[in-house]
Design a protein around this nucleic acid. Structure first.
Lengths: 355, 355
DNA sequence: CCCGTCGATGTAATCGATTCCACGAGTTCC
DNA sequence: GGAACTCGTGGAATCGATTACATCGACGGG
């Protein structure tokens, strides 16, 4: 592969001049510039990003460590992150932690070794020493979706508290009194917060959240299935199951279908995170939608600000309830409900760029 | 951040010795090794991968350019690619082309600039000059899922021909005679092949595939919706719509739902690519399942073989039909059909590692 | 006419690693 | 006892870029 020396030789100038042309430094003669450009074209030369990074100590690359690529929520997040980063002149390297702290560490270490300019993390646990050290050592970092308390790093996330209250109001209005939740790992903020918000919202209606109605999941489908089976085996099964993410909701659907239980007649189902498929499941699933694209973009902006020496602030955006049929609401006869009716939006797909 | 010089100073040896310890070169005394290791620990030193890559001309990194991250099929592919690559000591950088040739080029260029060791591509088009040049210039490359004819690059893909024949047999057996397809872009091999396989299978039953029943899609949801609306507007609408990928099937579902048309009573639906959600849609969707994980792993093995100077062969694996309810088959009364019955598998989710 | 300034260019140091080569000390073998 | 080897080590070149500094010619002002 041609190097800058080959270009210099071909153009009959020094490597310094070639470099100046490439970085369009002002003091190059029109003649030299033309000769360099034509040599570049003739050789099909492309600057070696590795060498450039070594010299300038900048990779123009962001690392993104997400909890699970197979989760459509994170997939959409990754997409918006890459889009915004590209617009700002950065590339993104994605590391998939698969909800495993050891894998998360592997990717953080790998990204740090590659000297990425900044790190975007959605931590799977309370924070490995590695990540905390990196943050302390001054690696520009931003948490997205989940975060680690007590670390001085901006956080970009959605606040689901209000939406969870709306959900509980909706469920209570439908006459449900025994509500259960499939929680995420206690080591994650979202794992804890969603349970807390749920408990708090129940409290407002004088309802309890007994331990038997808190199933411990891990944000993956299999755990949703397992926990739901446990709920169905109880002497007094819950009337509603609220899954703290969309994959556990998928697992819950697997479980109820395997048992021949009907939704919402026998049991109601709701989920945190809205995805396009929820419109077409049987029945369509009531869910809490996060402004995923906005979160990704805001996170990148905050991170790039940090990298470039500007402040870089935390951002919290509201999530909102999307009511469908899985909790038993009398559904409008027309295929499309009144779009003006709040807080309900029928087709999240319509907000997505490919749709 | 500490460099190899700092470690050398701390340990009282030369940088050469430090490097030898790090790459466990045999000729280092036990004493020197111990001193270096403790210096490494004390300083929290990690070798700079950028500098190392510059010197060794190896990045231990694979580039993966996929057509669309939001497509669960590619998401699963990416996951298995990363897994296998990690097992073989490589990292993966993913570029999402979003079915856009210009974006694909952007990522290929970016990856080449970063001097990745090899490239895994699922081309969105007939092949940009950039990619063809890279292949000719000797960049180790492997095509996965889709490929470009006439280029000397191994191809790892699934053959859907048999499964499509099974599908048409199934549809014909149910009495359907007017079958339509939502095709992918003609610039892609999968876009063309699936139409051809479908036409051929129809031919075996003496059925035609008229132009009006070939809708031009682009593998994204919105095109599936648009094409399906076109089909429904025909004087003689098809009895079956076969979507060439899962996102267009989602779009088709959107369209039929918006019209209040029932599946499978008014129109049947089938899709290429099976995903976990198809089990829970209303109705469950009959689909052709690819051995996605196997494809990803085989592609990585072929690419790494090429990188390391070994042959690296093309691989073709069979896809298979998974019958569900969306085409109108009388569904067994029990929630689970007999698993021995071929060619049908009910829960693709069970084959996925997180389930 | 001479000197200071400016624009264009080249030389060489540098980034952080790897690795070839040379060197000194200790062994082995004749 | 000395030649030939081995082993552990350090010095220095190298990868491909960027950039501070030096140089040189042209030009304008006094």
């Amino acid at each position: 592969m041609a190097s800058i020396k080959d270009v210099a030789a071909e153009a009959g100038v020094s490597v310094a001049t070639v470099s100046r042309v490439l970085n369009d430094h002002p003091s190059v003669s029109a003649d030299a510039r033309a000769r360099v450009l034509s040599a570049v074209g003739a050789l099909g030369y492309r600057p070696n990003a590795v060498a450039r990074s070594l010299r300038t100590d900048q990779t123009h690359t962001l690392g993104l460590v997400i909890s699970d690529v197979m989760n459509p929520y994170f997939t959409e997040l990754a997409r918006s992150v890459e889009e915004e980063a590209r617009a700002l002149g950065y590339s993104v390297i994605i590391g998939n932690a698969d909800e495993r702290p050891d894998l998360q560490d592997h990717h953080v270490r790998n990204l740090l070794d590659r000297r990425i300019d900044g790190l975007l993390v959605s931590p799977t646990d309370g924070g490995s020493p590695l990540m905390l050290d990196a943050a302390r050592a001054g690696t520009p970092m931003v948490f997205v979706d989940r975060w680690i308390p007590g670390v001085d790093v901006p956080v970009v996330r959605a606040d689901g508290r209000t939406a969870v209250r709306d959900l509980v109001a909706h469920l209570h209005g439908l006459g449900h009194r025994r509500l259960a939740i499939i929680a995420g790992p206690a080591a994650t903020t979202t794992g804890r917060e969603r349970v807390e918000a749920f408990r708090e919202a129940l409290g407002a209606y004088g309802l309890e959240l007994p331990d038997a109605y808190i199933g411990q999941g891990d944000f993956q489908a299999e755990s949703g299935r397992r926990v739901t089976e446990g709920f169905l085996d109880l002497a007094e099964p819950p009337e509603v199951v609220f899954a703290a993410d969309n994959l556990m909701a998928l697992g819950a659907l697997d479980a109820v279908r395997a048992r021949g239980v009907r939704v919402p007649d026998d049991i109601a189902l709701a989920a945190f995170d809205d995805i396009p498929w929820f419109v077409h499941t049987d029945p369509p699933v009531t869910a809490i939608a996060q402004p995923t694209g906005e979160l990704g973009r805001a996170a990148v902006r905050a991170l790039v600000a940090r990298i470039e020496g500007r402040p870089g602030e935390s951002v919290t955006l509201p999530a909102r309830l999307v009511v469908r049929r899985s909790c038993g609401e009398p559904y409008p006869a027309s295929p499309e409900p009144d779009p003006a009716q709040a807080p309900a939006v029928q087709h999240p797909a319509k907000n997505r760029s490919h749709t």
